[in-house]
Design a protein around this nucleic acid. Structure first.
Lengths: 191, 191
DNA sequence: CGCCGAGTTGAACTGAATCAAGAAACGTGG
DNA sequence: CCACGTTTCTTGATTCAGTTCAACTCGGCG
């Protein structure tokens, strides 16, 4: 039996009252494993799972013509999903890919919806998760509107050092909305 | 007694099941009015209300050093709030300002939280509202990462024509992440 | 050992910012 | 309803941050 404690702790961090409904939630978790390069979600398809990562790194990205942009990264202890597709049940604009071997737990749309209906506390946890996802995007919006590329990089270094330390430069660059060459020059400038 | 039907319809659009809990929700609504230039929320202060706009236009913006950037606009029939501050109950990075005379309804943090606890269906509506707010920010993120200033303007023209038609150029420019001069040239180019 | 993708560096170019000035629109008071 | 001052929008000239294209280095892996 896999150890789901880490998932429980993550939910409690969203809402300490989540403990009361954990017994409903836990049986729905499916242990998953992905090799480097595997896709957890595909653009153009409807995403039916939210993943909780227990080891490895996942990248969320969108492809447009010949360009690819990174929107997010998930590490051990975090949730990762094509959230827009998951909540709307429409085809996703983004893909999720394991950039290292990844282990985690999946829970699925239909299960979660049933639980939302059944249990007020789970619904509450779902609301808090949605609010949390909102906050992440809101901070990014402020960052793009207010700061230069170099300032955004410094902010990233400060607030998400694990991204800078563990993710290839080309992905960090597109996450910041710039080209790898520009990020290389920014880093050189700061030394 | 003010006509709150428009608020009810907006909630039903989020979730048609919301009708069942409308009787809990309605008594909490407070009719509000703001003159042009009035603030509905101040940066640095904790935001305690969500507004539903019944007439007029609200602008959401952040000030940084001497620059001011617009994050959002709300028209009649829409909700408007310093959402990040509202859900975290921490000081807001953004302000809300009426850019025309505004009428609407307010409902307050404590009332809403009490209702979340009391009623599963309201909790559900709160989740759907949070998911909707997420989707708005996500689309904006994709827009910034994938498109040039001109493309973002064309997208705005296409998806939110009322913004282009009714909002001063200087605010639209900062919403797109560019200077008014640049937007002026983009528009000239397109003629 | 040689290949290959990732990262860096250089040079030329470009989209957007900045600074400055003029034109148009707007509100206010006479 | 017009005249005035103020703000907003536009246009032009210049500068600058970031892109593009190309060449070179480095480290991992067959």
């Amino acid at each position: 039996m896999p150890d789901t404690t880490v998932v429980k702790n993550a939910l409690l961090q969203l809402d300490r009252l989540a403990a009361g409904s954990w017994h409903l939630f836990e049986p729905l978790l499916q242990e998953v494993h992905f090799d480097t390069g595997d896709y957890l979600a595909h653009s153009g398809r409807i995403s039916t799972a939210i993943y909780f990562i227990t080891s490895g790194i996942v990248r969320v990205f969108a492809t447009n013509a010949d360009k690819e942009v990174s929107l997010d990264f998930a590490f051990a202890g975090q949730f990762s999903t094509a959230y827009a597709s998951f909540i709307t049940q429409t085809p996703s604009a983004v893909s999720l890919q394991a950039i290292t071997p990844v282990t985690g737990f999946a829970f699925y749309y239909d299960d979660l919806q049933a639980l939302y209906r059944k249990d007020h506390q789970v619904e509450r946890t779902g609301r808090l998760l949605a609010e949390y996802q909102y906050l992440r995007k809101y901070h990014r919006e402020l960052s793009f509107l207010q700061y230069s590329a170099q300032e955004r990089y410094l902010q990233l270094l400060n607030e998400h050092p694990q991204i800078v330390q563990q993710i290839p430069v080309k992905y960090i660059a597109s996450y910041l909305g710039i080209e790898p060459e520009s990020l290389s020059r920014i880093r050189k400038n700061l030394k």
